[in-house]
Design a protein around this nucleic acid. Sequence first.
DNA 1: CTGAAAGCGCTTACAG
DNA 2: CTGAAAGCGCTTACAG
Lengths: 343, 343
Amino acid sequence: MKPQTTRPRLIDVADAAGVSIATASRALSGTPGVSESLAQRVRATAAELGYAANLHARSLASGSTSTIGLVVHEIGDPYFSEIASGVLRIAADQGRTVQICHTGRDPQVELQQIRSMVASRVGAIVVAGSGFVDPSIELPARRELEVFSDAGGRVAVIGRHHLGVDAVLPANVEGGRAVAEHVLGLGHRRIAVLTGSTGLTTVADRLDGIREALGAAGVAVADVPVIEEAFTRAGGRAGARRVLESHPRTTAVIALNDDMAIGCLSELRTAGVTVPTQISVTGFDDVAVAGDLSPALTTVRLPMVEMGARAVGLTLKEPGKRPRRLRVPAELVVRDSTGPAPA
Amino acid sequence: MKPQTTRPRLIDVADAAGVSIATASRALSGTPGVSESLAQRVRATAAELGYAANLHARSLASGSTSTIGLVVHEIGDPYFSEIASGVLRIAADQGRTVQICHTGRDPQVELQQIRSMVASRVGAIVVAGSGFVDPSIELPARRELEVFSDAGGRVAVIGRHHLGVDAVLPANVEGGRAVAEHVLGLGHRRIAVLTGSTGLTTVADRLDGIREALGAAGVAVADVPVIEEAFTRAGGRAGARRVLESHPRTTAVIALNDDMAIGCLSELRTAGVTVPTQISVTGFDDVAVAGDLSPALTTVRLPMVEMGARAVGLTLKEPGKRPRRLRVPAELVVRDSTGPAPA
DNA sequence: CTGAAAGCGCTTACAG
DNA sequence: CTGAAAGCGCTTACAG
């Protein structure tokens, strides 16, 4: 793409204001050590000329950037788009630019995208999305982020990872426990779990919470089928079919995200199964549409927008001696998709 | 944020490969005029050292960038997150970086964000989201984009604007006509329209299509109330309440986007009105969740992901003499939220 | 408080 | 085909 040559440069405003570019630079960047009168004159001149600093030149000269790199699995997925919304909001407030990419949930692509962010010399990287239970999958990314971090870059992840960096940690275990307790409290005992890959820490944590609740209620964990499909609406539909075929006496389905719950509801409707009279269904995340479904979805609310915002906040702070962990609560939201277990 | 000093520079790979930095630069960027043997050696060395060019230095020296700026109203909104998904996909394929911002549907913020993208010297800007019927609202943005464009920057918008640049244009008029014809074909005559601000070109175009169909069916346009609320789920709920209060005999509600339709369905359910038996409801856009609602939403499909992808495609081509217009079709998708008009 | 000058890491005419 | 050198537009020690 072609050059942007017509824009005024720092030297143009310096000339117009009758100062050196050093002074102009200081006045504009707010560096102390310029008399207020001069600074004002320079700023006025810059505004008049419509001057905006070339960020590339600034980054190159200063060796630092105000750009935040955001890595998500898939921006079309509401979970991530809500996180991104929080990131963009705070970034804009702080006058920072956001560079974004998605990985399609592929660790290889993720690694490559992180490398590309490092190459473009972003100042901070926010990685959103579940980590992997198997640490070796994340090792190359971990290495890359360490080098970045050692060189002064800031890193924050959203969700549990083996990455040794600042993290925003949703209460997945507690959320899993809460939703399972809710279902158990309604008298359900023939329960099925619908989940995405159990290789994801998010899934593992939510499952742990569910198992704790089952154990506490005296339900044998082995009696609760854990049905693994894609972590999407299509996966929810497929999972629902498997429940109906292989576990026809099930009275409650706990889906480990809202997407799967939505797919499950859709499939149950197709099959003529009424929710919650015949089968109760729960989700996880509380994406924006969850409350407008029919029946409105009982789920676990995670404050996605806030999680994105707080991750950016972490990158804005000075790094701590040890990685920070910011826990965000999960809140059970009871709506219409759950009801008493049928007799 | 602090410097990224540990990364190898071009001179490091040049030294290691025993060539000048000029040759190294050419070999790495694929500029012709380097013997293949040398080029290979340089590339191997670069890979060994984990070299990645500093994009800021490259941009500054070459006067061009491969970064694409994406401006959306609100990334948390599925309409925009699906467009963004298409943008990110193509950008990644082309090895381009995407800088993103959202404007909260505020023309002032939009202008400011466009300025900031120009300042950071992106190579292309994609603006997604409706234009305004009143051209004066877009004038400052138009000026800014013209300067950018004159200086060699590439611009593409998604949706009708008065911006005089390449555009991806969804068939809003045709879509409006199709959905209205569908509703009329089911025998509905007491129809209400739920819409966001009529100051948006998207709304104006969809309304035009609806009016054409009404006229062709001999229904007086004046008899069809156009209820204006926020272009969101909450707006759809508010609109539904107004329909029930002020136009209680309505048998079909045409909402001008899916978000409003979803809110409307939710409110009708709360009010004990059954869809489609008592009232039919239609949406517009076909966001991913539309097919999984209950009842599944009859709507007009716009290929959002593709629209994003094609907008990027436009910026990748050489500019034409006149602005290009890429029309994308709208497709009526009949599902379960519409049925025959009650007798 | 202010300015002259070096330097950030590249690309690209210009010579050879 | 290859290299020495200028220059992109800033920031920031270093002097004064």
